[in-house]
Simulated scan of single mutants.
Amino acid sequence: MLKLYNELADWWSLLSPVEDYEEEATFFGETLAKAGLPPSPSLLELGCGGGSNAYHLKKMFARVTLTDISPAMLRISQALNPECEHIEANMRTVRLGREFDAVFVHDAIDYMITPQELKQAMETVFVHCKPGGVALFVPDDVTESFEPSTESDGSDGVDRAARYIEWSYDPDETDYNYTVEYAYLLRERDGSVHVEHERHLIGLFPHDEWLRMLREVGFEAESVRDPYERDIFVAHKPVKINSIARKM
């Protein structure tokens, strides 16, 4: 498992503070509400990470279930969202045996690095979405929008501080991936600073391929542009499900 979500998870709140998610999560909540939610709706988030989006979204929902593949990240989310249900699970394969009014997948979907993995995750979302329910997928990029970039951020805590550099590039434009190099600079309580590096492989799929696969799974899908100029995908599960979708 990647360092960021395992041995470095204790630094998450400094590398990616929860307050930084408020504006983005507000837009996601408005998008889900506009798509149609019943009274007292339920929410499932796949790949919740440290629970920062859920922290801002949970006030909209009567019941919230959060899943992630990383036990360390789930512990962070549990501290932030103690009233929410937390389950360790892989979004490619998990089957909870329940359906939800809304299913949300933030940028954890980026770690689906083949078309097969992406479709597996879509099938998981479909299975857990109630007929008439809505799903929201938020990839960082589609193929058409990707551009190499370098970013940095981080924050200071009471007695520790963290910064990171994020360098994104695509060494092979013929495949379904791009690469992100992360360097983390971590200042300990005693003032010492150490540096960690790791490489993340990120999935990158064409816009129309997203829509095609969502529709193949059984969703009625469309894309919308968010305030950060990303193409994100809103998918409705029909009230009447065809026979192929029932077999997932």
Rank of each mutant, 00 (worst) to 15 (best):
I109P: 02
K58F: 00
R199E: 15
H236W: 11
L136R: 08
V94E: 08
V125T: 13
L136N: 10
D153M: 10
M213W: 14
S149D: 13
H106N: 14
N177W: 00
N53T: 07
L4S: 12
S70A: 04
P39C: 00
D190C: 09
L43H: 10
E88T: 14
D110Y: 02
H197S: 04
Y176H: 14
E229A: 13
E88F: 01
T174F: 03
S243W: 13
L136E: 10
Y21E: 12
C129A: 14
H106P: 08
P131F: 12
S149W: 14
F233Y: 15
P41N: 09
H194M: 03
A102R: 05
L204Y: 07
A121N: 03
W11C: 03
F219E: 09
E147N: 10
H56Y: 12
K3E: 10
P115I: 05
G218I: 07
R246I: 05
G191C: 07
I244A: 08
K247I: 02
H197I: 01
S13I: 08
R225Y: 01
E123R: 13
F205H: 13
C48A: 15
K237S: 05
G51L: 07
L32S: 04
R95S: 14
A108P: 02
F219Y: 15
T174C: 01
A25M: 09
E123Y: 01
A108F: 02
G203P: 01
A161C: 12
E196N: 02
A161K: 13
I69H: 05
H128Y: 03
P82D: 13
I232F: 05
H86Q: 12
T174K: 12
V103H: 00
V234D: 09
D141T: 05
G203V: 04
E99P: 00
D10W: 08
S52F: 00
Y178R: 04
N177A: 08
E45C: 06
C129G: 03
T114K: 07
S70F: 00
I109S: 02
A102P: 07
P38M: 06
K58V: 00
M213H: 09
K240G: 00
P131C: 09
S13M: 11
I232N: 05
L43P: 10
F100I: 03
T124M: 06
L4F: 03
V134S: 08
F219I: 09
H197D: 02
I202T: 03
C48N: 06
F205T: 06
N81S: 11
E30G: 13
S155N: 12
D156H: 11
H56S: 03
G133S: 08
D140K: 01
P206A: 05
L46G: 09
A102D: 05
I69T: 09
